[in-house]
Nucleic acid binder design. Structure first.
Lengths: 212, 212
DNA sequence: ATGGATATTAGACTGGTCGTCTATAAAATG
DNA sequence: CATTTTATAGACGACCAGTCTAATATCCAT
């Protein structure tokens, strides 16, 4: 049925256009990040990402071995992006250590509101999906959380040294506690389309820090 | 291709067996609960549930209008089941109010370990999936959380009257805080296949309660 | 009872999606 | 300019959600 001799579409490697060097691979990653952050891995079809970027399947599977490999790469990308954001806040020496944590929280709140509470945390999303995800995701996701936790622990340690929290505080445990609860708060914020879960959690987190 | 005259399977309404009154509808709901609690809504195909129960599609769509209607019913079912569990603990007058909360937590921990950390909280799972779920789920999920929150607030109020926590404590806020964080803890427990996130969250929750 | 209405099951079928794979063509290489 | 590499186009097979028809047991009215 496809014997139409006049097929206007062109296939094969596209001619190089100097002016517009579109990096298809990067476009796919960016679109993937957006969609997966909203809908998760299993519920997202490749076609949706493909259509959004205007790229055919063939290109996708040229750049990525599989949907799974694509997802793993997104985890790395998001993890690194977020780590950078954390560092930007946690190493901001114009603020006290605890104020830096507050600043991160405000930043994150902004982000959620800006996207209409549709986008959550990619790592949290995929974590919830573990039951339907390839095992390969588990270590990566776990590792990402551990990385974020360490960065926060560093900031809390600075808070300790600045006498904002007690010397006896276990900063690792506190940091673990924070991310556990924060992910829950992001989930609820998405569900309720409101910032109040984030505020509720943040308020309690700060009030229960062991004071100097 | 289907012209085999010898089709051994029987169709039509099945003969009634007095001894074994299998309630197909209930079986479907139970199986759905198990599978969705592990894998979520989007990642689960009807066929998987059907095969597990040994029931054909026709039966499913006789009892339920759609997969969405089925899911909504599961939310109600799970919400009610869990509320009953909460009440069992929160109204156990052989324990002090705070000890009742601890007892619930131990119960939940048991449950997670018993199923190899594969099963999480259905409401949390679906909440995370909101981006890919019909809008009809939002109110139901939100309402379920609110219901659980009220029950916990009742128990915390008893704790206040028993002088286990301060008179000034805002039990509603504390209950909200608990469920926000608890869902995050369940997520992490599934991811890490370990109880420690649950312990970490619970420990901090109790230590940060405003003491009398 | 008996015959029509109802309840329940069997599973084919349709339209759509998902992920893989092959064919094709431009660019790079030498 | 021939060969290899890079990138695109889209066909293909498997699967899935939901619908529909057929079949058959039970229920109920007369």
């Amino acid at each position: 049925m496809d014997t139409h001799p006049t097929s206007p579409r062109r296939r094969g490697r596209p001619p190089k256009q100097r002016d517009e060097l579109v990096d298809t691979r990067a476009l796919l990653l960016r679109a993937g990040l957006e969609v997966l952050t909203e809908k998760g891995f299993s519920a997202t079809g490749l076609d949706e990402i493909l259509k959004q970027v205007g790229v055919p399947k063939g290109s996708f599977y040229h750049y990525f071995d599989s949907k799974e490999a694509f997802g793993l790469e997104l985890v790395s990308l998001y993890g690194a992006f977020f780590a950078k954001k954390l560092d930007r806040h946690f190493h901001n020496h114009t603020l006290s250590p605890l104020a830096r944590v507050r600043a991160f929280i405000d930043d994150a709140k902004d982000g959620m509101a800006r996207y209409g509470y549709r986008r959550g945390c990619l790592i949290g999303n995929l974590g919830q999906e573990m039951g339907a995800l390839p095992e390969s995701f588990r270590l990566r996701l776990h590792g990402t959380f551990k990385d974020w936790q360490d960065r926060l622990a560093g900031c809390l340690n600075a808070a300790r040294q600045a006498n904002e929290i007690a010397d006896t505080a276990d900063v690792d445990q506190l940091a673990a506690f924070f991310w556990i609860g924060w992910e829950g708060a992001v989930l609820r914020a998405k569900l309720e389309q409101s910032l109040s879960p984030l505020d509720t959690f943040a308020d309690h987190f700060f009030t229960c820090l062991p004071r100097r």
